[in-house]
């Protein structure tokens, strides 16, 4: 008889844990997605791929997938360069830099929904401070809640306000821990500040940048809080997460919700894999 590998034996608790925490709910989800199943109806019926067909043929699902990607792209495109810029500024030594580094971290510490509410109060027609300035400056009342582009701008502002500092702080940590010598060497070698930044600084912090970016992108794909607060998912701003919440979680439709969740999971899995694979060499 073959002896059981002690290493395998030791990892059984972990595997069991993984199974119950991850695989079990996931398999359960797949099971649910193939049934007509609501929390209030005791009869569960097998309906095959019907839920999936319904989801994929839903305009709202497709629109929300678009919105999710749209917000992911614009938020990321703003937050990364801005965060990097702030990190570079704060990586220099100047008077008050310590306080500036603390202040920049404050938004991260705020509860996301609180941030959204704060911005909503700032943008309420006739009542918010931003609207007040807009009227004073002659732009009139801005339709931040009902116009797709303006609402998107507000959503971007909210997300960028809260999460740009995340990039800034992580990149700042990376920047200040870089060795100084190559910078002196580069100066002596006659490199311009731009060349120093693009050829030395950026490549040096690239692994950190890739990791925070992947984390942030996966997080952005789950964007929901500002959507709920600003538009409640209206005017084309509904993201995948908001959509799932509205059509599955709220009506307690386990089957339909399961189908959306499975599709969502596949999407995230594929995306995460592409990203990680693409940047594997950089991270290592």
């Amino acid at each position: 008889m073959r002896k059981l590998n002690p290493g395998l034996l030791m990892s059984i608790p972990t595997l069991l844990f993984l199974f119950f925490w991850f695989f079990f709910p996931f398999l359960y989800n797949i099971y649910a997605s193939m049934h007509y199943w609501t929390l209030y109806n005791p009869n569960i019926q097998f309906i095959g791929a019907e839920n999936f067909i319904d989801v994929l043929s839903s305009i709202d699902f497709r629109n929300s997938a678009f919105a999710s990607f749209f917000y992911t792209i614009i938020c990321f495109a703003v937050e990364l360069p801005l965060g990097l810029g702030i990190a570079v500024l704060l990586s220099r030594e100047f008077k008050g830099v310590g306080i500036a580094r603390v202040i920049i971290a404050i938004p991260i510490l705020m509860i996301p929904i609180g941030t959204s509410i704060m911005w909503k109060l700032l943008t309420m027609p006739k009542l918010g401070l931003l609207q007040y300035f807009s009227e004073v400056l002659g732009f009139g009342v801005i339709d931040f809640y009902g116009n797709f582009w303006l609402a998107s701008l507000l959503i971007l502002l909210i997300d960028a306000w809260q999460w740009t500092p995340f990039f800034a702080i992580v990149l700042l940590a990376a920047l200040v821990s870089l060795p100084r010598e190559p910078y002196e060497a580069a100066k002596v070698d006659g490199a311009s500040p731009f060349m120093v930044f693009t050829k030395i600084t950026l490549p040096s912090i690239q692994p950190v940048m890739v990791i925070v970016s992947i984390l942030r992108v996966l997080d952005l794909l789950k964007l929901a809080d500002p959507i709920f607060v600003v538009t409640k998912g209206g005017s084309g701003t509904e993201t995948l997460s908001a959509y799932i919440w509205r059509v599955a979680f709220k009506p307690l439709d386990i089957g339909y919700g399961g189908a959306v969740a499975v599709l969502y999971w596949i999407l995230m899995f594929v995306l995460a894999n592409i990203l990680v694979r693409r940047f594997k060499s950089v991270i290592q």
């Binding site: 190559p182 060497a185 580069a186 002596v188 006659g190 490199a191 490549p203 690239q206």
Partner: peptide, 21 residues
């Protein structure tokens, strides 16, 4: 004059290379 405009070459005591290149 800034170092980058002096056109002076220097080799440091501890080897300095641009590690990522």
């Amino acid at each position: 004059i800034e170092p980058e405009r002096r056109n002076v070459a220097m080799v440091f005591q501890f080897p300095v290379v641009y590690a990522t290149m």
